[in-house]
């Protein structure tokens, strides 16, 4: 197996996540795309860790998973709150703090 397969896959997932974050307006879709990006980074972390032969990469990936879980919890709570106040989850309509 080539190291580059994993790294290019990780770069692909990250870029597709970027496209999703920029091109979607539904807040739930935005969060889904952020998860895609985090997973891309995790693959790169683990592959690099295996390449240099220590497990620090895996530990970083574990931390990323834990923080991602927290992020989804808070993010969905926020989306729920916005939905309750505005009856919409369209991020373009949430411009209360726009200068």
């Amino acid at each position: 197996m080539k190291l580059n397969f994993f790294l290019v896959l990780s770069a692909f997932l990250f870029s597709v996540g970027i496209y999703g974050v920029l091109a979607r307006r539904n807040a739930v879709m935005l969060l889904l795309s952020v998860e895609l990006m985090l997973n891309g980074v995790n693959i790169a972390l683990v592959a690099m860790g295996v390449m240099v032969g220590n497990i620090t990469g895996q530990i970083f990936a574990l931390f990323v998973i834990a923080v991602a879980a927290a992020e989804v919890g808070v993010g969905l709570g926020l989306i729920l709150l916005v939905y309750r106040n505005k009856q919409a989850v369209n991020v373009d309509e949430v411009d209360l703090m726009k200068g």
């Binding site: 790294l7 770069a11 920029l22």
Partner: peptide, 22 residues
């Protein structure tokens, strides 16, 4: 932007790690 990021990242990966076997 997604294409740009993908090109940059994979370009760097391929240049640096070449054909390295994991």
């Amino acid at each position: 932007s997604a294409l740009l990021v993908f090109g940059l990242l994979s370009g760097v990966f391929i240049k640096v790690f070449g054909n390295q076997d994991i």
